[in-house]
C-alpha cells in the first residue's frame, strides 16, 4: 500500500490511523481501493453496479472492527460511493469510517458517501465518522454524507460524528428506523469557520415498543459560517426520543435549529432541547483569572465544548 505524506496525515486525522489497521479494512484513496483485508467474520466485497462495497459481518462476531477511511488529494475529484453494511445477529463491532480531503487546486473536490446499515437482532454497533479538510487551494472541499440505519429488535447503535476543520460544504442526511427495544445514540460535533456551510438533517422513526433515540449535536459557528440542524423524531409506538442542539455562535456565525417531534402513539415520550448563544462572558472572565488571555480562554472553552 503506497500513500504519500498528505494521505497519511489525512488518515491520522480521520481514523487515528498511523499504520495498517487491525481487523478488516478498506482504504480508498483518490477513487481507488489501495488496501483491503477481509477476516474470517467480516467480508468486504466491491459492488458491481455502482462504486462502493458490501460489508458482511457474520452473526455472533464480537469485539472486531472495520476501518473504511477515504482520502482525496486530487483536486477536482467528485465521487459518489455506496457502502452497505449487513450486520448479523448478536454482534458487537466497531466501524470506523471517515473522509479527509486535501485540496490544493482550483477545482472543487467532492465525496458523497452513502452508508446503509442493517443491524441484526441484539447486535451492538459503534460507528465513528470523522470529516476533515486541508489544503490551501481555492477549490472547495465538499462532503455530503448520507446515512441510513435499519435496526432490528433490541439492537444498539452508537454513532459518533465529527467535523471540526476544513470542510467547506456539507449536507448530511441521516435516517433511522428502529424496531422494538432498539436504541440509537447519536453524538454529533461540528465546527464551521470562514464561509463554510453545514446542514445536518435527521429523520428518526421509532417504530417498535421500547425503542429509544438520543440525538445530540454540539456545534460552534465562527466567522461567516452557517449551520442548520434539523432533527426530527417520529414516535410510532411506546418509545423515548430526545434531540438536543447546543451551539455557540461567534463573529458573524449563523445557526438555525429546527426541532421536529411527531408522536403517533399516546405512549411516545419525545423531547427537544435547543440552546444557541455566544460564549458566556463569565466563562471567559474565570479563565482569564487563571492567567489565560481572552483568545486562549476562548480556545479552551471551545475545545472543551467540542470534546
Amino acid at each position: 500500500m503506497k500513500l504519500d505524506s498528505i494521505q497519511k496525515q489525512l488518515l491520522a486525522e480521520i481514523a487515528d490511523l498511523h499504520s495498517i489497521p487491525e481487523g478488516a479494512y478498506n482504504i480508498r484513496s483518490n477513487s481507488q481501493s489501495v488496501g483491503r483485508v477481509s477476516t474470517a467474520n467480516i467480508e468486504i466485497t466491491s459492488k458491481t453496479d455502482v462504486s462502493g462495497m458490501d460489508i458482511r459481518i457474520k452473526p455472533g462476531t464480537r469485539h472486531q472492527s472495520v476501518h473504511i477511511p477515504v482520502v482525496l488529494t486530487e483536486s477536482g475529484l467528485s465521487e459518489v460511493v455506496y457502502n452497505d453494511f449487513f450486520i448479523g445477529e448478536d454482534c458487537d463491532v466497531v466501524i470506523i469510517a471517515g473522509c479527509g480531503i486535501d485540496n490544493c487546486g482550483k477545482a472543487d473536490s467532492e465525496h458523497d458517501g452513502i452508508h446503509r446499515f442493517w443491524v441484526g437482532k441484539n447486535s451492538k454497533v459503534k460507528y465513528v465518522e470523522k470529516h476533515y479538510g486541508s489544503g490551501d487551494g481555492t477549490g472547495k472541499r465538499i462532503l455530503n454524507p448520507g446515512t441510513e440505519v435499519y435496526m432490528d429488535e433490541n439492537s444498539t447503535m452508537e454513532m459518533e460524528m465529527a467535523q471540526i476543520k476544513g470542510v467547506d460544504d456539507t449536507d448530511r442526511k441521516t435516517v433511522a428506523e428502529l424496531a422494538a427495544g432498539a436504541k440509537l445514540v447519536v453524538r454529533e460535533r461540528l465546527m464551521t469557520h470562514g464561509k463554510q456551510r453545514a446542514l445536518s438533517t435527521y429523520d428518526v422513526r421509532l417504530n417498535g415498543a421500547g425503542a429509544s433515540a438520543d440525538v445530540v449535536s454540539r456545534s460552534v459557528a465562527r466567522d461567516d459560517s452557517y449551520q442548520r440542524f434539523d432533527a426530527k423524531i417520529v414516535g410510532n409506538a411506546p418509545c423515548n426520543g430526545h434531540t438536543e442542539c447546543d451551539s455557540i455562535i461567534m463573529d458573524n456565525g449563523r445557526i438555525l435549529a429546527v426541532p421536529g417531534l411527531e408522536a403517533n402513539d399516546v405512549d411516545a415520550a419525545l423531547v427537544h432541547e435547543a440552546a444557541i448563544g455566544k460564549i458566556a462572558g463569565e466563562q471567559l472572565t474565570k479563565l482569564m483569572t487563571l492567567g489565560l488571555t481572552e483568545q486562549e480562554a476562548e480556545e479552551q472553552i471551545i475545545n472543551g465544548f467540542l470534546k
Binding site: Q283, Q300, I301, F305
Partner: peptide
C-alpha cells in the same frame, strides 16, 4: 463559580496551575 460544558475538573486544574 462558573460552570463549563465539556471542560473537566482536571482541565480546569491544569489551566489554573499553568
Amino acid at each position: 463559580p462558573v460552570r463549563f460544558k465539556g471542560l473537566q475538573v482536571l482541565d480546569l486544574l491544569r489551566l489554573a496551575s499553568g
